[in-house]
């Protein structure tokens, strides 16, 4: 089917089978591989993107459900060359190990802070529980989110 999709502010016209998961459209049709395939069943959160401001699991969101919608991926989270505060915090706190789940982790955290700028520890944990990390970076994720929520200045030094 033909549909329009706005991704990271850019509108695309696509002719694609309606049941194709949004994930594969982003990765393979639009060249945005930052969003990852982990489980295909909405269980791990690696594919998390924002659709009309809400976090969705793009691996199990048929692209037709995103038609005419606005999608934000990890590539579009910052503004231009400026990183989102969470991305900077992820770097400053050295969160990623293998890094594969981190796009999804950051997208979940970004939605949390967009709706609740000063979350309590429990709220962060609850919001991040849908995102699996096999390397075990969970404690640094919490520290990074809390540092942004607390308005800590990012480190000047770049990795």
């Amino acid at each position: 089917m033909a549909l329009r999709l706005t991704v990271n502010g850019e509108t695309h016209s696509l002719d694609i089978e309606a049941d194709t998961p949004l994930l594969w459209v982003l990765r393979d049709e639009l060249g945005l591989p930052g969003t990852k395939f982990g489980c295909g069943a909405g269980l791990c959160g690696a594919c998390t993107v924002h659709l009309n401001g809400q976090p969705v699991r793009s691996c199990s969101t048929p692209v037709e459900m995103a038609a005419d919608g606005e999608v934000t991926t990890i590539e579009g989270l910052g503004s231009g060359d400026r990183l989102h505060a969470l991305q900077q915090a992820w770097i400053d706190h050295g969160v990623p190990q293998c890094g594969y789940c981190q796009s999804g982790q950051i997208m979940s955290a970004a939605h949390l802070l967009a709706t609740n700028p000063s979350p309590a520890r429990d709220e962060i944990v609850a919001a991040m529980t849908g995102n699996l990390c096999r390397c075990g970076t969970y404690s640094r994720i919490i520290a990074a989110v809390e540092s942004v929520a607390a308005g800590e200045k990012p480190a000047q030094e770049e990795a």
């Binding site: 990765r27 393979d28 060249g31 945005l32 591989p33 930052g34 969003t35 990852k36 395939f37 991926t73 990890i74 590539e75 910052g78 990183l83 991305q87 992820w90 770097i91 050295g94 969160v95 990623p96 890094g99 594969y100 981190q102 796009s103 950051i106 030094e157 770049e158 990795a159």
Partner: peptide
Amino acid sequence: NRRLDARAKSTGKAVYGIDVSLPDMVY
């Protein structure tokens, strides 16, 4: 203490095997 790959892995730019893309590639 810093990780040199943290930036690439926090911006979606790190290239994993699954991200490799080639001309005329099929699946």
